[in-house]
Write a protein that binds this DNA or RNA. Structure first.
Lengths: 198, 198
DNA sequence: TGCTAAACCGGACTACGGTCCGCTTTCATT
DNA sequence: AATGAAAGCGGACCGTAGTCCGGTTTAGCA
């Protein structure tokens, strides 16, 4: 099972220019402040550009589109989470038995998806493959754990089946429309895993 | 192209005015033609308005927003599908054992989701509860079949878990990015159902 | 330091979704 | 038929995402 593409890109393509770096920081800072202050929907490209003291074209050059900008903001917390999965303390990180790791993984992912729901939704369709790369990481990890558990069947599809109920729109529906509690959703997911493993 | 009331509304609110009916048909017709001819993304509100010989405001008055218009277009095929589930021939309709009905239901829903993927994606967020009503129907039916099968556990959550892998974005990912065949996806889903029922 | 090519910048411009409000059509009632 | 009020209509208008391209800055190199 091959390692998913992690954050640091090793190659050293042409170094980033100073003005570019400065502007990128200003943009992400401005966007983050707008989110903290007024929510994700207040993050318009014009507002970010003005707050960052930068032209609108500059933002599109760096991030491709609005979704790309959101993906950029997501990157920090996402990288931290990936790190805790790869090398953090058990049961999320290595060291615990696979099944415990899988259960911890699901809970953790579910909470992360709920915590960053707005941002995740705003980041879908990012041209940058980052958004897909993030999903790819979770899928790869679940496939790895399933194979460790000796599960028989189409591992890739079972991983998808386990991950699908954790997607943001579904969690939104359950918590927002059907008034389910988080605990109930987690319990249901653990039951699902139990049945898939059996 | 007259509007099918999805679920019968009991009251008899004021009848629809003739001009309104005429314009609604013209709008839906124009939108359908644009889809058939140039794809869903060519359905801009301006284009539909011009093709239908109608003001833009008229469309928004009837359909709320673009998603509502898409949901309106979806209604016909969706109603037909619901009818075939409720009163069509087995194994999709009544008469077959619950498990066979469930498997037929999944295959049928998967195919429908793939066939109308663009339209479904464009219809999310429709103000009209119709889009949600459509999902609600599938969820209710699956819950019913699960209870018929005497499944133990949180039926509502198990239904969600079974339905989640059939959602359009996930099918898109599997067929488009991961190059899975439809047959493989169906087989995987049937395996999932088998495990959940066990 | 001076030069050059490439990367970068920024704001005017376009396309689209959605709103607003004065005008028109419809239809129940008389 | 006349009428009046409510439902319907439509296009000008607005905010936002995204594009484009002429001018500017940077970094490597002599």
């Amino acid at each position: 099972m091959s390692e998913p593409e992690l954050l640091p890109i090793l190659g050293q393509p042409p170094r980033e220019r100073r003005d570019a770096a400065r502007n990128r920081d200003a943009v992400m800072c401005a966007a983050q402040q707008l989110i903290d202050h007024c929510g994700v929907e207040a993050v318009t490209m014009d507002a970010v550009a003005e707050k960052a003291g930068v032209g609108k074209g500059t933002i599109f050059r760096r991030f491709g589109n609005r979704a790309g900008l959101m993906a950029g903001l997501l990157d920090e917390s996402e990288a931290a989470w990936q790190a805790s999965v790869i090398s953090g303390p058990p049961p999320l990180g290595p060291g615990a038995p696979p099944k415990e790791r899988l259960l911890a993984f699901g809970r953790s992912r579910l909470e992360a998806n709920l915590r960053h729901a707005d941002l995740l939704l705003a980041a879908v369709g990012a041209d940058t493959g980052r958004s897909y790369a993030a999903y790819s990481f979770t899928a790869t990890h679940v496939r790895y754990l399933l194979s460790e558990l000796g599960v028989h069947g189409d591992i890739a599809l079972l991983a998808t089946a386990i991950l699908a109920p954790l997607e943001v729109p579904i969690l939104r529906q359950q918590t927002g429309v059907e008034n389910m509690s988080i605990d109930r959703i987690i319990a249901g997911w653990e039951d699902l895993v139990e049945r898939v493993l059996a």
